[in-house]
Computed example of a mutant assay.
Amino acid sequence: MAEHEIKQIISQLEKPHNLHQAPKLLSKAKLGLLHLHALVPSANTSPQHILLATTVLEHGALLSIRLKDTEAFTRYYQQLQPFYSLPHERWHRAGKPRNQSKVTGLYLLLLLSVGDYAGFHTVLEGLEMSSGKEHIEKDELIQYPVRLEQALMEGSYDKVWGETKGERVPSEEFAVFSEVLIKTIRSEIASCSERAYPSLQISNAKNLLFLDSEGAVIQFAQARGWVAKDGRIYFPQQEAEMLAAGKDVMSSSNTVIENTLGYARKLETIV
């Protein structure tokens, strides 16, 4: 496959209606890069072919996110690393990769969504070493996951929620992982609630769990085996344990819940 044919495939990949045809198109493009000996950069790979390969792989990474295929995205991210780590002079006049910050920021957000904080900091430290801390601090696509990670470490779930809403999300691809991250946080808060209290008012649970309606709270409660009645959510296991012990159960979870509930009540003034 000639270089111009790969460029034609790239043009097709950039059309929104070709989303579900993308995997086949990407396979053809990567086969073409293989024939050009450009799928993995070497000392003999021309700057033009380096840029061509990077463009194809970046399209693959971003399209994988839109298709919600995180495994494919991770593979594309890994394939891009040898290109991203090339010295600046190797790119020469061919131009720079257009989506390096976006792909990297998305990978950082993926690491957050699965709770891999060690991996998150390893990637971030590598970026600071290769590009400079000052440059990274000005890159909004990198700073978005950085802000989320800082808020998570502080336990400021309201800030996380606010960052994942509307115009604060850098692009539609980031919204996919942001949604996953909120679901993870919601599950963690639910687990803390079960340990901290025998019951909660449904109105409080709605704010606490960042759900849109009391009906959504009831659905969430049923999925976790909670009981909703008389305007409250009851945690059967915790209630049974407290009755058996004959005393209130106090734990560090109380502090987390109280803080989060307080943040949630202020949500409308933040978002």
Rank of each mutant, 00 (worst) to 15 (best):
I136F: 10
E173G: 03
Q219V: 12
F210M: 14
R168P: 01
S131H: 15
D158A: 15
Q237M: 11
Y107E: 10
E173S: 02
Q222F: 07
A175L: 04
L127V: 04
E128G: 09
P236V: 10
G115T: 07
A245N: 08
H121D: 15
P236I: 06
C192W: 13
L243P: 05
V169N: 05
A151D: 00
G225P: 00
E167P: 03
A221W: 04
A244E: 12
G215N: 14
M153S: 12
E214V: 07
A205D: 05
T122I: 10
A118R: 14
Y117I: 13
V160N: 00
D212R: 15
I189Y: 00
F120K: 02
R168I: 02
A228R: 11
V169A: 07
R186T: 05
G105H: 00
H121M: 08
R168V: 06
I218D: 11
Q219T: 12
R147T: 00
N204T: 09
Q237F: 11
E241D: 12
K206P: 07
H121E: 12
L209W: 05
Y197R: 15
A196H: 09
K165N: 14
L127P: 05
G132L: 06
I185R: 02
E137S: 07
S191G: 10
L108C: 00
R232K: 15
G115M: 08
Q201L: 14
V176C: 01
R224Y: 09
E239M: 13
K206S: 12
K138A: 15
W161M: 08
R195F: 06
E179Q: 14
V123M: 09
A228C: 09
S199G: 08
D230S: 08
Y107A: 12
E140G: 14
G162N: 03
S187F: 09
E125A: 13
G105A: 03
L209C: 05
Q237V: 15
L200T: 10
S130R: 15
A216I: 08
A118N: 07
S193F: 01
